[in-house]
Design a protein around this nucleic acid. Structure first.
Lengths: 343, 343
DNA sequence: GTTAGCACTCATTCGCCCCGAGTGCCAACG
DNA sequence: CGTTGGCACTCGGGGCGAATGAGTGCTAAC
């Protein structure tokens, strides 16, 4: 593919991303300074179509890029846009103004991304169960119940009300906590070895108390896993995309966005690959083969990681999405740290 | 207004709610057994229009109810529908299956209501700051930080990481907690008297420690107030309403639904009135004068209360919405209690 | 290799007509 | 006097065809 073809392809993709209308040879000749006439561009476009980079809806309607065309554009033609200092400032401001509690980081990140890109944003929060047990403590609530507080090395904190079996005192509970803390020290939450349970069993002779201990561990863990991990943003924003002018189309995508498991799967598939773009038919899942996804994985101090993503029509501002995610990727952990999650 | 007019009005409202199309005299004669001819019904409808209960888009298109018409229907004509045992069973199942943690109750309630009514659901959670201070406890995290856990009488639990000033030991913090617990006992969180602060000041002589104490209290409180209190559900469901066939209309309502403060205001205005219906032009806020809101306030053991609401086009199944909210109203506190929030 | 010219293709828009649902009024009926 | 049937009138919506315009593909000339 020669230089000029590339420039034509670039022009087509850029114009189409901007206008959302099939673009014709004349338009390109007018708006881009290629130094050739529309007729020549027509010839080039016909060639590009032969090569699979452009598509025709029908004879006589401008061309639109194919998935392959977008791919070539993203890989080579697009000039990677960096965020300006001003934009970075804005992002920082957004966090300062809106995120008061660590739990809000993910939701607000999704909102921010969708707001900037005008597309759907997905944020997959790190799994608490992947981090290591630090300690379990009890606080007295009343004579029948106490509050179990579970902390992990990554700084997750969970609290939960547990009933105390009649006959057991708060002191019994505190002793129990010490045993559990000893036995589970350093265990990753989703992989507590059988041996640890045996050790607890050995330490706690009282049957009811042992049952209570198990219950506490179970309850402390189960909430953490069932906890919402996928945050969505921008289901409103996509309405401004011409692709979703028709309500049926909107319903379709919203229906899909409710399938949390499916989305998690899609995002998990991209885990660990840094910044990555999947375009149109490159998607495995059929329902979004007219959409593209840009994903980035972020790290929080070493082990823990999650994924942030932008989902939108193939006609997406890839440069913007990529630079934004790239920035978030680097700085999300800073934000989290500033908010006091992790030292 | 005589008996027959009422039956005609009832027929018009019911048919319109069902079909979303303006209803004509012939349709009513066919579908409702009023024992009179379409001509007679036409006359009655003309009268009802004079009286303000029905409206005409223009000559020769069936009638649709006015706000006043809906009001008359809701107040007198509608037969109040009770939930069947089966439906109640379903609701209970929903909660059992989906609500694992107390924090999810409100979001899931919103989802449930929107799912059943096919309209937007709003749930205003009770304010933590309206409940009374029970105790503040510290848990050690590492040598520089500890976790402050705040509990209130209503069973709210908040946790937050606080830095310990250098030089202060964990024991200092625990002493501080005891002082704070003494001084704030029984105070409502949003109305801590000046005297309480003076008392703390008097008890804690060390300047840095006092600052730290204030910071802890402030931080424990500020998160609780900033915490999300309004839960939305069903922004997808309303797409199936013919009123929102046009994307512009959808955008409009979604935009409004983002104005959290506005929504809180609207709901707060209905606080404490039990089950209440506001129809079309009865709404103060102009943006929803073609919508109706059904609200109900629920109580959680005495003091604490919040509001649940259904927001939809005036052509709403009032009976369904009201019976559902009525039920939720009575049983939400049961659900909460079962999940262990409050004894 | 590039360009101008020309015939051809569709999608869209507009006007037009017709149909059907519905009203409003009037006259007749019991 | 209330009820009914009949009839003229009114719109909205669907279907049809012509005009428009953006765009292509091809060919011949530069």
């Amino acid at each position: 593919m020669d230089e000029r073809k590339q420039r034509v392809l670039q022009a087509v993709v850029q114009d189409y991303i901007e206008s959302a209308e099939p673009v014709g040879s004349r338009t390109i000749a007018r708006r881009h300074d290629l130094g050739v006439s529309p007729a020549t561009i027509r010839n080039e476009m016909a060639d590009l179509e032969m090569l699979g980079y452009l598509e025709h809806i029908h004879t006589s309607s401008g061309r639109i890029p194919s998935s392959m065309g977008y791919r070539f554009y993203v890989d080579g033609l697009m000039q990677p846009k960096r965020l300006t200092d001003e934009e970075k400032e804005q992002i920082d401001l957004w966090y300062r103004a809106r995120v008061k509690r660590i739990e809000e980081v993910f939701q607000e990140t999704a909102r921010l991304i969708s707001h900037v890109t005008k597309n759907v944003a997905l944020v997959l929060a790190p799994q608490m169960t992947k981090s290591a047990f630090r300690c379990l403590q009890f606080l007295p609530l009343d004579d029948r119940r106490s509050v179990a507080v579970l902390m992990t090395d990554a700084g997750f904190i969970e609290n939960r009300i547990v009933a105390m079996p009649s006959g057991a005192s708060f002191e019994d509970f505190q002793r129990m906590a010490r045993v559990i803390n000893d036995c589970l020290a350093g265990c990753t939450l989703d992989a507590i070895p059988k041996a640890a349970y045996r050790k607890i069993r050995a330490e706690i002779s009282d049957e009811t108390l042992y049952e209570a201990a198990l219950d506490v561990i179970r309850r402390a863990l189960d909430g953490t896993d069932g906890k919402k991990r996928l945050y969505l943003g921008g289901t409103r924003e996509i309405l401004s995309q011409p692709e979703f002018r028709d309500v049926e189309r909107v319903k379709e995508i919203l229906l899909m966005l409710e399938e949390e498991e499916l989305l998690k799967e899609i995002l998990s598939a991209h885990l660990g690959d840094g910044l990555r773009v999947t375009i149109g038919q490159e998607n495995d899942y059929k329902g979004i083969q007219d959409c593209s996804i840009v994903t980035a994985t972020y790290h929080l101090d070493g082990e823990l990681l999650g994924t942030i993503a932008v989902l939108g029509p193939t006609r997406m501002e890839y440069g913007k999405a990529m630079s934004l995610l790239g920035y978030m990727n680097e700085h999300l952990s800073d934000v989290v740290r500033r908010l006091g999650w992790q030292g």
